[in-house]
Every structure is written in C-alpha cells, then in structure tokens.
Design a protein around this nucleic acid. Structure first.
Lengths: 246, 246
DNA sequence: AGAAATTTGTTCGTATGTATA
DNA sequence: TTATACATACGAACAAATTTC
C-alpha cells in the first residue's frame, strides 16, 4: 500500500540530486559530478543504485559518462527528443499528418521570429543552401538542401525550444520514415515549383519581409497531401478578416 | 582505443532491444517484458547492466517497472518532456520570452485544428471551464480555469505532439516559474478583459469559427509583456496582404 | 486464506578497462 | 612508465512486492 509518504526508489535520489544541483545553479554544463562512490555514500544508497540513476540521466542527455574520468553535466537533448518522437509515433499510433501539422506550427512561428532576428551569417548560409538547391542534380541533393534551408530558417529564430523540437522532428522523419520527405519533394510537380516555393521563403528571410516568407512556407506545405486542402481553406478565412474593415 | 567497430556499452543492448521490439510492433503499450534475468541471459550481459538500461527507459517514459510483477511498456512521456524543458531552461539560459513564443506556436496551430476536430464532449468541457472562470473569486481559481480552457483547446486539436508538448510546457511553467502565469493573469487590467479574451477563444471553438478563436488567442498573448508589442506589429503586416487586393 | 514461486529492488564484493597526473 | 582515481561490468545474495497455486 502507498501511505502517501513518498518512499521513492533509491535511484530517484540521484536524479533529484542532479536536477537540484542544476536548478540551484550549483552545477553547470561541463562540470564534473562527485565520483560514484562518493555519491553513494552521500545519498546513503549503493553504488549500483547510483549507477542506475546516472544511466537514466545520461540517456535523457543531461549527463555524459566518461570511463576513467567521471560524469559530466551535458546538454545532449536532441537525441532524446528524437527517440521520444519515435516512440510516440509507434506507441500512440500517430499519423504522418500529425507530424506535418507539428512541423508547420514550428515553421510558421519560426518565420515570424526569423525575419526579426536573422543575422548576416545566417543569411549567407541560407543563400548558399538555396543556390545549392538550384544546382542540385539528384533527388538526394535536393533533400539535403531542402532540409538545410528549413533548418537554417528555424535556427534564425533563436528560440531554443523551436530549434530543438524542429531538429528532433526532422531527424525522426529522416530516420524513421525516410520516404516522407522524398515523397514531398517528389510530389512537387516540377523542379521550378520547388524552387519558387523556397525562393519566397529565402527572400522573406533575407529581406526581412514576413509576408513573403510566410507565403513560402504556406506554399511548401500546400504540397503535402491532405493538409493542403485544409490549409488553403483556413487561410482564406483568416484573410477575410481585414476585408470586413475595408 | 576505438577501432571503429562499435563496442557499445552493455546497457545500450537493452535500449536497442526494447526499441526494436516496439518499432517492429512485436510489443505494444501494456505488454510485459521478459524478466530481468531472462533478458540478461538473452543479451549476454549481467542483470545489473540490464537494470541500468531498463532504468533509462523508465525515466524516458517508455517503461514502467513494478516490483514483484515485471517491466511493462508504457507511454509516460509528459514528465520527461517537462524535465527536459526544465533542464534546457536552466542549462541553455532560456528566457521566458522563448517559452511564450513556443507556447504561442502550439496554441496558434492547435486552434486551426481544434475548430475542425472538436467534438461535443470537449465543447462541454471548455464551456464549463469558461463558466467557472467567470465565477472564479480567487486568483488561484482563475489560474486553474485559465489553464483548463487552453489545455482543452489544445486537446481538441487531436494532435498528440501538440498535446504532449503543450502539457509539458505548462507543467514546467507552473512548476518552475509559477509566478509567470500569475503575472500574466494579474497583468490583465480587469477581470472583464480576461473574460473577453477567453470568450472569443471559447466561442471560436464552440461555433467552429476560426477567426474568432484566433482573435482570442492573439488577445491573450497580446497581454504578455514584450511579446505584445512584437505581435501587434506582425499582425498588421499579415493583415495588410488582402487589403492590397481590395 | 495461506503458502510457494516469481519478479523487481537493493546491496556488497570483486575484477577489469580507461584516463590522468 | 607508474600509480591513482574512476567508470564499466559481473555474480551472488537477500529483501520486498506481486502473482500463482
């Protein structure tokens, strides 16, 4: 029976200990934790229990274990997020449609922020990716530079949550359902259409023109099956708002 | 030396084993894993190593361990996401501004989907939350029903990624920076303003009117400092598009 | 209801590979 | 090179919770 008193499992003490150290700013990225034996003594648990807790923290990217050296605070969140998306995808029976909706949500907001915060360096990166996309000869290349453009745009938003979420999402898409991006790109009726879509997106970023950038994103997602019909319908409704004021 | 041959750590075998079982649909949520001793024998590692791997999987929400019973496939992703947001927040020095931007991205997209997919049950839930908000007397209550309205709206989107991300985000906000939601709500210049904002949001959902729903969301976020100024500026630019057609 | 079997939770001891001064 | 500190890994044992008979 559970009496309400928290009789936490031993390894939880480790997780809490580390989280507390981080939250209270006593440890930061790169810092080394006490040795496992010391932790075991301090927390009054066995070394094996300490290790179970440390292993969990390593998996979720907060820790990095180096044999012979020690356990260090780290920030490797991308992989975990990707893994979680993958598990959710299978276990919760999520559709590709939902992935696309999530991706759109991130890109839409990222574009708003990117036009305000993009710096010259990012502009050059995105310019070059676009040039490469134009010169791309194989589908393989097109996939790569398509991805680079979108990722750079999100990076330019300078919002760590958007960036990490987006990276995890695309990593998962490329890894688990690799066919998806291929199908999307192959679905473009011509190379020119793909370029036109990205031209708007890139121009929006470089000229700081939000409307053009959003047009590019909308165009890109309009090609994705099913979602296309839905979003066109939505946008007309949004745009009707100001008309009433005319 | 590392010879390039991957001499992975022992516990990785467990993580890979479980992930493979899930990916190949050999196991689904609720299923029980082989006993730890059996796994140890099958994977040719010690039980301690098996446990390290299992612990990691438990922490990231894929597993649930029950003493005396076994290890079961689970789907407890919310807590992990929350923890990761918390770690990112501290370790990457993320601002409240970025949290708000992320939250807005989710709500904005969720509203688009919610008006299309909301069912009668969710409508009733959101109606009642709104009534409770109107009758709320303490700030405590207002915080609770404010949260219920927004959460129900996101739930109505029926997108698991949006739902999980949003829940993690609000859990984190309430837990770590509890002052935030309070400040936002207290920032509303009057109770009426708070209600008017939510009235639009709720009406949009119930009547399936996207424009009204989006107005509600925009209104809500417009009160959040700094982001407010930015977003008003943005919206005028968006809304200028159709005007040109007039 | 109760006893036995099963399974996870936890600990200790020991041996080995690795990094560092 | 050597010595020390540290993580990695294994096996055995017992405790505690659950399931099974």
């Amino acid at each position: 029976m559970d009496h309400g008193e928290k009789e936490q499992k031993s390894y939880h003490k480790v997780v809490e200990y580390v989280n507390r150290q981080i939250r209270d700013r006593k440890m930061k990225a790169g810092d080394r934790l006490p040795a496992e034996r010391e932790l075991a003594e301090e927390l009054n648990i066995s070394r094996n229990s300490v290790r179970e807790g440390l292993r969990a923290l390593e998996i979720i990217g907060i820790l990095e274990s180096r044999q012979g050296s020690g356990n260090y605070i780290a920030m490797n969140f991308d992989g975990v997020m990707t893994g979680m998306l993958a598990s959710m995808y299978v276990l919760k029976g999520i559709t590709e449609n939902q992935l696309t909706e999530y991706r759109f949500a991130i890109e839409w907001e990222a574009m708003h922020l990117a036009v305000l915060r993009v710096d010259e360096e990012k502009k050059e990166v995105i310019r070059e990716a676009f040039r490469n996309l134009q010169d791309a000869k194989t589908e393989e290349e097109r996939v790569r530079y398509d991805r680079a453009i979108h990722q750079t745009m999100v990076d330019a938003s300078q919002n760590e949550f958007l960036i990490t979420s987006y990276r995890a999402l695309t990593d998962f898409m490329d890894g688990y359902i690799r066919s998806m991006r291929r199908r999307i790109i192959a679905g473009m009726q011509s190379k020119n259409q793909l370029e036109e879509t990205h031209r708007l997106l890139v121009e929006g970023i470089i000229r700081g023109d939000l409307a053009t950038g959003l047009q590019g994103i909308r165009g890109h997602f309009d090609y994705i099956e099913q979602y296309k019909d839905f979003h066109m319908e939505v946008e007309t409704e949004i745009n009707r708002l100001p008309e009433e004021k005319c």
